[in-house]
Nucleic acid binder design. Sequence first.
DNA 1: AATATATGTGAAAAATTTGTGAAATCTGTG
DNA 2: CACAGATTTCACAAATTTTTCACATATATT
Lengths: 221, 221
Amino acid sequence: MKLLIVDDEANIRRVVREYAEFEGYETDEAADGMEAVNKAKANDYDIIIMDIMMPRLDGFSACKEIRKQKDTPVIMLSARGEEYDKLFGFELGIDDYVVKPFSPKELMARIKAVCKRGESAQQTPARLRFEGLEVDMAGREVYVNGEKANMTPKEYDLFFYLVKNQNIALTRDKLLEEVWGYDFFGDDRTVDTHIKMLRNSLGEYRKFIVTLRGMGYKFEA
Amino acid sequence: MKLLIVDDEANIRRVVREYAEFEGYETDEAADGMEAVNKAKANDYDIIIMDIMMPRLDGFSACKEIRKQKDTPVIMLSARGEEYDKLFGFELGIDDYVVKPFSPKELMARIKAVCKRGESAQQTPARLRFEGLEVDMAGREVYVNGEKANMTPKEYDLFFYLVKNQNIALTRDKLLEEVWGYDFFGDDRTVDTHIKMLRNSLGEYRKFIVTLRGMGYKFEA
DNA sequence: AATATATGTGAAAAATTTGTGAAATCTGTG
DNA sequence: CACAGATTTCACAAATTTTTCACATATATT
């Protein structure tokens, strides 16, 4: 779990960092909105803790900018009395507010709550469409140009896993572990054979299954 | 969608109200259990968000009182550390707990989940028809081409569960858990035998019961 | 260009999964 | 306690899937 702490006061950053690291989070810091945007775009944080009032770029604007590229959950810090428009924050996808002076324990509780939510709520929808390729995970069906593809169990499992992790590079080992299970001790190349069958089942939409030479595969939408 | 917010702290009510209204809910407020009971009995809310610790009448007692007349779903708010007996809450039909301090977004996520749950439960009508196959869940009867099918209890349970979840892939484990109960520790294949009997009972309409190789079954309408 | 490495693919062997009939077990009832 | 019906387990055949392997093809490295 990686956490970005954004505040212009080094003291606040220090307190939050100490608590977070005690809880086992990896932390990174930024002293203003500009720096936050750069770091947030360059790294994959699991959550961002950000002050609203900062030099150079305020928290809301920074969040707006980050949102253009990433969907990282954000908890905003605001000083008591600062009457910020919460609705505006909600539109930006702010996940929570904590009012200064805050108790570090409360902040940590909220961080945990947000992280937990992200885990369960970040599911891919059950039905997806890529051009003429329809994917119904709930119904365990795939349609190629309206015609039902008849796939084998492993094909479905493999395909749904690829789709759920679309645009993410997956090694053969990762696929074996996630689709076959941790207790599979067979050959790497088994994956290749299943990719082959899957590609045949997908017909013209085999193009979505991309080979990453020296690595593995990915579903690229 | 109408929502009743019950808490003695005006601040909490305000935050919840703002978020809820942004999401398009109509809101109403009550500052204690007494007021909550009166409002809940007089109006038809879709969901009630209620604090446990309140003056005059606590959340549990209020819920109990409301339950005498209405079945409105309730999400309880409890302060961290308040060790209330969750089982007692579930007896009263509490739908969820949120521990303070909560993130408003998390609360909204849970509200949505509870509302959705209510919808889907009410969504399957008691009587359905698939070609010459009539399904009367309320009356616990099934007609095949007008003729009453004589099924065993488990057949009815299994069939109605499949129909309620039509077009959704169901594993044997899921079926065992939902139809047989979480405390069934028997063989997976028991499901197969019942599917076999069910198919025989359905005659020509056995076609609706689809085998999902490597997975389980589904009712495909 | 030659060599090494990685991936695509067809076919056969090995393993798994499902349908089904029948036997065993359980349950409620008179 | 015996009975009938319901439920569960079991075993085996049939169908299907998975895996492995060998070789062809493609890509990278020296």
